[in-house]
Write a protein that binds this DNA or RNA. Structure first.
Lengths: 342, 342
DNA sequence: TCCGGGGACTACAACGTTGTAGAGTACCCG
DNA sequence: CGGGTACTCTACAACGTTGTAGTCCCCGGA
């Protein structure tokens, strides 16, 4: 059906290898020949078949990106950054959604589909330390996320503990003492929720603030709706608090809405802190003070690391853990000098 | 490097074709042979090379999805739906970002990268009717978006005019007369902005409300920041209005924030209407009344149509235009009975 | 006993490309 | 003018898979 090297070669009156050489910018070709070939290519509208090229070269020019769900804004923005970085490296990106489901994540790692890519950037959510063996794969793999540390592969992620600690310390510094948390995962020991909780607790302890279990709101998926539900529960429970730390922005935004509907003023009555610095965080009412965990850097670094692994081939160096810098983005929902304002 | 049919065949003591037959569930194989082959596959950890299979079959099992930008929530949610629908059809999705740039869109349509896919779902933003010729490609193509109608390909999209008209009529029915618009594109004749404006104007005319140019806020990209900027300009201009129609949700949310910062109450002083029904629209303060344009249906239908085209091969039927149903999602930012409430 | 037919398997050639040899030709240097 | 060395191009064999056309053998029916 489609035009091949053979067709071009026939029209140009040369061998297919010469056409191939023209396409691949092989230097030793007579200008006249080159022109004839180029004319034939243009005439026939020839486009190289990348599948065939891949088969020969063993490279596809594509990488896979596996995330829980593009509907979660954090992962949408992450994917946007990854695709952009990949394009700069001349790669296209195949996006898979795992739904954060452990089985699907493990299946994906063994999926034949990956033979169509040169490597995988994998943001795990359902897997845990126990599944670390599944990460021993025979293709380049860069891990994102917080579910597994010390695995056999390169890992690029954020400083969850330190960043969460800084977030809580920011609230404490602005005079808050009773800080509710939205989005904790019950009994979890690995994962973003656990690490951010750990940072939160470290900050409390460092400032001699007792831990109050009744201030913790547990949820499953970090969706706006769960942030709202969790906040509703906290309010119904009747506990008093003067700040809320949403373990991510969408939770914080969901919670903030419920707070305001209930008549509390943000940040005067309750300060709200998020985590992720989504685009959306700058446009809520009030705009959301949050933590920029270095998402763009993570995406860029993940692609660079994967490209490096792909180039190296079997010659694998030791697995590296790379951590992004973070910073507090001060907006309106939690301000340093709010105590004076009231 | 990796395990091939040859390796499996050698270990199992059969020909490679027999291994291939086992994998492809060819019926006439002795159970004993099948078992030996399956044991060898398991032992060696054989995974079929999809690239080679693609080369033989001409099918890759992948489709491409081109959108302007995943950072725009609408396209993130669209991509999520497309990937989900594609997975149900056994396809993986390669996501490309065009930035809404005309040149990049046209380049993409001719890109050799597409040889790695069986077809393309293409959400155009920068191209226009003049570029319709670029859409004549020799692979299955389904067009989304509003830039080009009557092209040579299948087209799945929303009822922009009718939906926008319904949105404005909803505002009118709730007693609003001076309706500002945020997100119009100056001088545009095709595209979502133009169509939604058309629907808006039809509604005004149908109710005898004069068109007031000073109520129109022009922007380029439909970002939160542009919604905010546009609203700021409207306020500085000093025009009076009792409702705002954001031509999409992010614009409406950006605008709503500025409105509230300026001291206006939503919806009491100004009603706000969006368009898209993003997840986020349900969790703003106040939650955003908007139009659900049938995004999920569009994604599903686009994948189904593409799959059909792929199956049909060269035997192309006539290009079809398929339009999604829409509905007004009533939330807090614009309510039918607001007149009574104040 | 022979033959037809199907079951179980194999050999070979493709899919479209690129790497490896190598065959000519032209040119330069001594 | 011989011999080396570039240059220009071609033939062929892969990459890993699957379709086609077999081969062989066994069984049942005439």
């Amino acid at each position: 059906m489609s035009v091949t090297l053979h067709d071009v070669a026939r029209v140009a009156g040369v061998s297919i290898k010469t056409v191939s050489n023209v396409i691949n910018a092989y230097p030793h070709i007579r200008p006249a020949t080159r022109q004839r070939v180029e004319a034939a290519i243009a005439e026939l509208g020839y486009v190289p078949n990348l599948t065939a090229r891949s088969l020969k070269s063993g490279r596809t020019g594509a990488i896979a990106l596996a995330v829980p769900e593009l509907g979660l804004s954090y992962f949408a923005e992450l994917a946007a950054s990854v695709i952009e970085a990949a394009e700069a490296a001349g790669l296209v990106v195949l996006v898979e959604q795992t739904g954060g489901d452990r089985e699907r994540e493990i299946d994906l790692l063994r999926s034949p589909r990956l033979k169509m890519t040169d490597g995988l950037i994998f943001s795990a959510l359902g897997m845990s330390e126990a599944d670390v063996a599944s990460l021993s794969v025979d293709y380049p793999l860069v891990l994102l996320g917080e579910r597994i540390f010390g695995g056999p592969t390169d890992h690029v992620t954020m400083r969850n503990v330190e960043a969460a600690r800084a977030a809580t310390e920011y609230l404490i510094a602005s005079g808050r003492r009773r800080i509710a948390v939205v989005g904790a995962h019950e009994g979890e020991v690995v994962g973003s929720a656990a690490l951010r909780m750990q940072g939160h607790l470290e900050a409390l302890e460092a400032h001699g603030i007792p831990y109050d279990e009744s201030l913790i709101g547990y949820t499953t998926l970090w969706h706006r709706s769960n942030g709202a539900r969790s906040m509703t529960e906290l309010l119904e429970r009747g506990v008093e608090f003067d700040a809320v730390f949403g373990l991510n922005d969408t939770l914080a935004l969901g919670a903030m809405r419920v707070l305001q509907v209930s008549g509390r003023r943000v940040p005067e009555d309750v300060a709200v802190m998020g985590f992720d610095d989504l685009d959306e965080a700058g446009y809520s009412i009030p705009s959301l003070t949050t933590v920029d965990p270095g998402r763009a850097w993570i995406a860029r670094t993940a692609v660079e690391t994967l490209v490096e692994r792909i180039a190296k081939g079997g010659d694998v160096g030791p697995a590296r853990l790379q951590l992004a810098d973070f910073r507090i983005v001060e907006r309106e929902s939690a301000v340093a000098e709010v105590a004076q304002r009231v």
